[in-house]
Deep mutational scan, measured.
Amino acid sequence: EELVKLQGERVRGLKQQKASAELIEEEVAKLLKLKAQL
């Protein structure tokens, strides 16, 4: 659960930094994978 929170914050940070869409999608995919494991 802690990992999900951390990953969510990372995604939010990337969006604020206007990171590339590919990078954000990659991180979102990791986030969804972590959530699925809960």
Rank of each mutant, 00 (worst) to 15 (best):
K5R: 05
E25D: 11
R10A: 08
E27N: 08
G13N: 15
Q7N: 02
V28T: 14
K5E: 10
L23T: 12
K18Q: 12
R12S: 13
E26D: 10
E25Y: 02
L23D: 09
Q37V: 06
L6T: 10
L32R: 13
K18R: 09
L14I: 05
R12D: 13
K33W: 03
K35C: 15
K30D: 12
Q7E: 00
R12C: 00
V4T: 06
L3H: 04
R10H: 07
K15P: 08
E2L: 01
Q17V: 05
K33D: 15
E22Q: 13
L32Q: 14
L14T: 04
R10F: 04
L6M: 13
A19D: 04
L38K: 14
G13V: 14
E27M: 00
E26T: 14
E25L: 02
E22I: 07
K30R: 06
K15T: 11
S20V: 01
L31E: 15
K35V: 15
E2F: 04
G8E: 15
I24T: 10
L23V: 14
Q17W: 02
Q7W: 00
K15F: 07
E9K: 04
E1F: 03
S20T: 07
A21G: 07
R12L: 10
L6H: 12
L23R: 11
V28H: 10
K33I: 03
L14A: 12
S20P: 13
K33L: 04
K5P: 02
V4L: 06
L23I: 14
Q16F: 03
R10M: 09
E1C: 00
K30F: 01
L34D: 12
R12A: 15
G8F: 04
Q37D: 13
R10V: 11
G8D: 12
V28G: 06
K30Y: 02
K30V: 07
E27Q: 05
E22C: 08
L34R: 07
A29N: 06
E9S: 04
L32Y: 15
I24M: 10
E22M: 09
S20K: 08
G13P: 05
V28R: 10
S20I: 00
V28K: 13
A21E: 13
L14W: 02
A21R: 08
L3P: 00
L6Q: 14
L6F: 08
E22S: 11
K33A: 08
Q16V: 09
L6C: 03
E22K: 12
K18C: 08
L6W: 04
L32T: 13
R10D: 08
G8H: 03
E27T: 00
K30Q: 08
L31Y: 06
K18D: 15
A21V: 07
K5H: 05
A21M: 13
V28D: 14
E27I: 00
L6R: 12
Q7T: 04
A21N: 13
V11G: 08
L32M: 14
E1T: 01
E1M: 07
L32A: 15
L31D: 15
L32F: 04
L31Q: 13
K35L: 09
E9C: 02
A29T: 05
K18V: 05
Q17I: 03
K33P: 09
L38H: 10
E22F: 04
K5Y: 05
G8S: 12
E2H: 06
E26I: 13
Q7H: 02
E27W: 00
S20G: 10
E2T: 01
Q17E: 14
Q17S: 12
A19P: 07
A29D: 13
A29M: 09
E22H: 07
A29S: 08
K15Q: 12
E26R: 13
E26M: 14
V11S: 05
K30P: 05
K18F: 02
Q16E: 13
I24A: 10
K33M: 07
G13K: 14
K15L: 07
E27G: 04
R10I: 10
A19K: 05
K30N: 08
L34Y: 08
A21F: 09
G13W: 12
G8C: 00
L23H: 09
V11R: 10
L6K: 14
K18P: 11
E25A: 13
L23S: 05
L14V: 09
Q16A: 14
I24W: 00
K33T: 08
G8I: 13
K15Y: 03
L38T: 11
I24P: 09
E22W: 01
Q7V: 03
I24K: 11
L14H: 03
Q37N: 09
A21W: 02
L38Q: 14
K35Y: 02
E9V: 01
L34W: 05
E2N: 09
K30T: 05
K33H: 10
E26F: 10
Q37W: 01
L14P: 05
L34N: 09
L32N: 15
A19Y: 01
A21H: 11
V11I: 10
V11F: 01
A21Y: 06
K5A: 05
G13E: 15
I24E: 07
L3C: 00
K5S: 02
G8R: 09
G13D: 12
S20Q: 09
K30M: 05
A19I: 02
V28P: 08
E9D: 11
R12P: 09
K5L: 03
A21I: 08
E1Y: 00
L38N: 09
E26P: 10
Q37T: 08
L38A: 14
V28Y: 11
L31M: 04
A19F: 03
S20N: 11
L38C: 13
K5N: 07
K15S: 06
K35D: 15
S20H: 07
E25H: 11
K5W: 03
V28M: 12
E26S: 14
L38R: 09
L34F: 07
R12E: 15
I24L: 11
V4Q: 01
K18M: 12
A19N: 03
L34C: 06
L23E: 11
L6Y: 05
K18L: 07
L23Q: 15
L3E: 14
Q37L: 07
S20D: 11
Q16I: 05
L14Q: 06
E2Q: 02
S20Y: 00
Q7G: 01
R12W: 10
V11L: 06
L38W: 07
Q7R: 01
Q16K: 11
E2K: 01
E9W: 01
L34I: 06
Q17R: 06
E27R: 00
L23C: 12
L32G: 13
E26Q: 13
Q17L: 05
K30W: 01
L3K: 08
L3I: 08
K18W: 01
L34A: 09
Q37H: 05
E9F: 01
K30I: 05
A19G: 05
L23F: 06
E2C: 00
A29Y: 02
E22N: 12
K35S: 15
K35R: 10
V4N: 07
L38Y: 15
L34K: 08
K30L: 06
R10C: 03
A29F: 00
K18T: 08
L31I: 03
E1W: 02
K5T: 06
E25K: 11
L14C: 08
Q17D: 08
A29G: 08
L6P: 06
L6G: 06
E1R: 00
Q17Y: 00
Q16N: 12
V4K: 01
R12T: 11
V4W: 02
Q37C: 09
A29R: 06
K5D: 04
I24C: 04
L14F: 03
E26C: 10
K30H: 05
K35Q: 15
Q7A: 04
K5G: 03
V28I: 04
K5Q: 10
E2M: 01
R10P: 12
Q7I: 02
Q37I: 04
L14G: 06
K33V: 03
V4F: 08
R10Y: 07
R12Y: 05
L38P: 10
K18S: 10
A29P: 03
G13M: 15
V28Q: 15
V11D: 07
A19M: 10
K33Y: 04
E2A: 01
G13C: 15
E25F: 01
E1A: 01
V28C: 09
